[in-house]
Amino acid sequence: MSEGGTRRAWQRMLSGRRLDLIDPSPLDVEIGDIAHGLARVARWNGQTKGPEIFSVAQHSLLVEALFAAGEPFPSGKARLTALLHDAPEYVIGDMISPFKAAIGGDYKLIEERLKRAIHIRFGLAAEPLDDLNRLIKIADRASAYLEATALAGFAIAEARKLFGAPDLPLRDFAAYLEPMRPADVEARFLARFAELDAEAVGTL
């Protein structure tokens, strides 16, 4: 509760922004807050191998790379959309898919509102085309397969059943699967965002 007994639905970010989680404004979205948060949110509820967590920021970098590998001429905006596909998790965290399904509509509604605000803030379509969403989802599932088999202890047969086997030279993405310190992956995420944002602006 905040002052006066009213419910508080906002979170204060390190940038000083106060982001309303129920009705988020694009004006309160900052890429520094996103990068900082995602670099500290663990994939697979932290059940991964290595001395560091494998973060949502690293997953996002992997998905963007997989998306680009699957598309011969992806635009800067499309790649930026792929990089930010899980950006709402900087404030709502990462939940494994079975738990998301159990929670149902309220979680999805909040996630979609946040994603919409993030897209508007960075000059992307508030509602990406279905084809783009489908291609990003393919890259997301490929990433899940790689992470599951390399980091989360899944057998190959089990991962294939759950996520499908990517039709890509997987060795090309091995470097993305090395867990990194939060500060290092935060810097890497910000650098990749800057590259893709500059490319996206250049295509206007």
Rank of each mutant, 00 (worst) to 15 (best):
M1D: 09
S2P: 04
E3I: 10
E3W: 07
G4W: 00
G4R: 05
T6P: 08
A9P: 00
Q11L: 15
R12I: 07
G16H: 04
R17Q: 12
R17V: 04
R17W: 02
S25R: 12
S25N: 10
P26C: 14
L27M: 09
V29Y: 00
V29P: 03
G32V: 10
G32R: 11
D33M: 06
I34A: 05
I34M: 12
G37C: 06
L38Q: 09
R43T: 15
R43F: 07
W44M: 14
G46R: 12
Q47S: 12
Q47P: 02
G50M: 06
P51Y: 07
E52Q: 15
I53M: 15
A57I: 03
H59E: 06
S60G: 08
L62Y: 00
V63Q: 01
E64D: 11
A65I: 03
L66N: 01
L66G: 08
F67H: 12
G70T: 00
F73G: 03
F73E: 06
P74G: 01
S75R: 08
S75H: 07
K77V: 02
K77T: 13
A78F: 04
A78H: 05
L80D: 04
T81K: 08
L83F: 05
D86A: 10
E89S: 13
E89Q: 15
E89G: 07
Y90Q: 08
Y90R: 03
Y90N: 01
V91R: 12
V91E: 12
I92L: 14
I92H: 06
I92N: 04
D94L: 13
D94Q: 13
M95S: 01
I96P: 10
F99Y: 14
F99P: 04
K100F: 02
A101Q: 09
G104H: 11
G104C: 14
G104S: 01
G104V: 11
G105A: 14
Y107N: 01
Y107K: 14
K108T: 09
L109M: 10
I110Y: 09
E111V: 05
E112G: 10
R116N: 11
A117F: 04
A117C: 11
A117Q: 08
R121T: 09
F122E: 01
G123E: 07
G123L: 10
L132D: 01
R134H: 14
L135C: 09
K137L: 14
I138V: 13
A142L: 00
S143M: 02
A144D: 05
Y145C: 02
Y145Q: 08
L146M: 15
E147S: 06
A148E: 01
A150C: 06
A150V: 06
A150E: 02
L151V: 08
G153A: 00
F154W: 10
A157D: 14
G164Y: 00
A165H: 01
A165I: 03
P169D: 12
P169S: 03
P169I: 01
L170Q: 11
D172E: 11
A175N: 12
Y176L: 02
L177H: 02
E178G: 07
R181W: 01
D184Y: 03
V185M: 11
E186Q: 13
A187H: 10
A191I: 04
F193R: 13
F193V: 07
A198Q: 14
A200T: 08
V201N: 06
G202V: 13
G202L: 10
T203M: 13
